[in-house]
């Protein structure tokens, strides 16, 4: 095969080209962006973002929600019920609890129970990973965490865009849902979830 260079000319290596490409890669790898350029890019980006948020601020009656994913469906909950979000770490399962109670987590010294809404909505299980997040909701009386597959972020929804939930839905679904936006984000009713007695396990037992 050495003595037969014409056997496969398509695979013949152009070493000069290869060297050139290597050199270019090395140069690009070692290139450092100049500080002015970096600052300029960041400023331009901040300006763009600030302009968007200022537009949403003008309308009254808008609902500020936290959007997250549950089994590829977008759900939202009103910001007023959200205390914070945190990654799902060190989950301690609780024995002798209903299946929707995943367990307990420690958030900066505070023990918070985590429930899984997918059990209520008959959504397919996706399994728990380190990437799962917990949205901690609270009101005056209770505080617990809702498992989310991914946190999308904070968003504004105008009150007009929220449509009432479908009449075909019954039971707990109908109770927990507040509406659905045009972008198919399901808005949860935080007040009802927090005040639902069925979620309070220790009272029953």
């Amino acid at each position: 095969m050495i003595n037969n260079p014409s056997a496969n000319p398509a695979k013949r290596l152009d070493w000069d080209e290869l060297h050139r490409r290597l050199e270019a890669a090395r140069v690009s790898l070692n290139r450092e962006m100049p500080p002015d350029e970096e600052k300029r890019i960041l400023k331009a980006r901040a300006a763009t973002l600030a302009k968007d948020s200022l537009d949403g601020e003008t309308t009254e009656g808008n609902l500020e929600i936290l959007e997250f994913l549950l089994a590829y469906e977008r759900y939202g909950i009103e910001m007023s019920f959200v205390r914070e979000t945190c990654p799902l770490r060190d989950l301690t399962p609780l024995p002798c609890t209903p299946p929707f109670v995943l367990g307990l987590i420690n958030v900066r010294g505070e023990i918070v129970s985590v429930i899984d809404l997918k059990k209520f909505f008959d959504l397919p299980e996706k399994g728990l990973t380190d990437l799962n997040k917990v949205v901690i909701v609270h009101d005056d009386a209770t505080t617990f965490g809702i498992l989310a597959d991914e946190i999308i972020g904070v968003g504004m929804v105008s009150g007009d865009a929220i449509q009432p939930s479908l009449p075909t839905l019954t039971g707990i679904r109908d109770e927990y849902l507040k509406g659905i936006t045009g972008e198919r984000t399901i808005i949860l009713d935080g007040n009802r979830i927090l005040t639902d007695r069925r979620l309070i396990v220790n009272d029953e037992e």
Partner: peptide
């Protein structure tokens, strides 16, 4: 980045509060 994201969300929540 993930943590930063959460942090940013939390910051937004704080800002909303």
């Amino acid at each position: 980045a993930e943590q930063s994201n959460l942090l940013a969300v939390n910051a937004s929540i704080e800002a909303a509060k």
